[in-house]
Design a protein around this nucleic acid. Sequence first.
RNA 1: GCGGAGUUGGUGAAGUGGUUAACACACUGGUUUGUGGCACCAGCACGCGUGGGUUCGAUUCCCACACUCCGCCCCA
Length: 448
Amino acid sequence: MITKPKGTKDIYGMEAKKWQYVSKVIDEVMEKYNYDLIRTPVFESTELFHRGVGETTDIVTKETYDFTDRGGRNMTLRPEGTAGVVRSYIENKMYGSDDKPTKLYYNMPMYRYERPQAGRLRELTQFGYELIGSDDPLSDAEVISLAVNIYKILGLKKIKVNINSLGDTESRNNYRDALVKHFKPHIDDLCDDCRERLNKNPLRILDCKIDCDKEVMKTAPKTIDYLNEESKNRFEKVKEYLDVMAVEYEVNPSVVRGLDYYNHTVFEIEVNVEGFGAQNVIGGGGRYNGMINQLGGPVTPAIGFASGFDRLMLALEYENVNLLVNDSIDLFILYVNEEEKKYAAYLTNELRMNGFIVETDYLNRSLKSQFKQADRLNSKYTIVLNSCDLKRNEVKIKNNKSKQEDIISVDALIYYLEEKLSEDELEIYENTNHDLKNTQECTHNKEE
RNA sequence: GCGGAGUUGGUGAAGUGGUUAACACACUGGUUUGUGGCACCAGCACGCGUGGGUUCGAUUCCCACACUCCGCCCCA
């Protein structure tokens, strides 16, 4: 048997329905925030990621899927979304548009050559968005609050937002020097990885899980103390806007992010559900004002966010969020003989064209099996075609829940179904839809 | 790249160096010549991750590999 490659996943059945639902919610929210969808290629020149994401990042040095195409070009399956979006922004001269800032979102698969574990796959899906062309602290706050809002609308409750500021280039360099100065005398106390990091990417030492409890770590300088006046004021502004939008957050100096391109605001969103596993950061992002220029575009400020779709789905599952996924059909049409089968074919087609979800039997099953199939599909109504009824141009339709049966004229069928289904829906809405109402009420209260 | 635990049908699984791989659920058909979801009956793994080895004989023992799950590094 040929099996799927390591670290990949087939998504089908109920899981696929949930994916569609979550994607739809994302699309709707993004539309309200006026972000446009962008799709970029799965593979790009290897160089894009080296220059865009950074030579020293782990993602680029040891996790990419690289290949040479038949023309001898070096290609890489994208490990993240921002580099491709920025490349497209520059290549298509979007900076020339009068519509500023440029707001783009995506929902696409990414590829990283890693050892799979809970919440980590080699083919992963991320949705994310980029706000390009504004350096205003309000854009930072909006990008963060948007992420929080998507999670909230989907029904996640136990999320925590960690924010930090790396400052501008000057602040970042000062901080970097201070870190090196701080850790150098203690280099022998640090783990092998950290010794390596000291030269290449000292910020990452702060993320280390082996050395995190050591004294040197606790006394390490904090990014915030090395922000120059301008960067500090900027960070304060971001926090002010977040407060106005009622976003709860915590300033966490150890959030430094693994990608080289970040400056100023960086943030991560984690879920705190028991048993969720080690990969509890479901989304993160930050400002990358230098990247567009570095990739050959005009100097342009930008900020973005990306979230792991698979991890988001896991979080929803662990929080027992009940997604409003439709797993029923409107009508199942049963038949026995060939004449009725033909009529079933006609009626099924006709009703589908009128917007109903209709199924019938394709396996010439016994009537009993057809009933079973109708149950399995959670059919709201069933029609058993009967030659005698059909001669009078009538069908017998049954509500599978109430068991009530009606004999109605075929001409009235569409009208009948429309009316009955909307009655049923109203009943379901009154019983199950309170969650959504409550969320909306909460938001209103906060705004007032 | 490193470490731990696994891999028996559609599913959950029991089991053994030697004729037919238990049980349950699901599924299909029948009892019921056109009204089901109950009950009863029948059917349902030529196979025990893949490839080698030991053996008269391996799903069971040994080795390698693959994959899955969990963790480290890192990230979403």
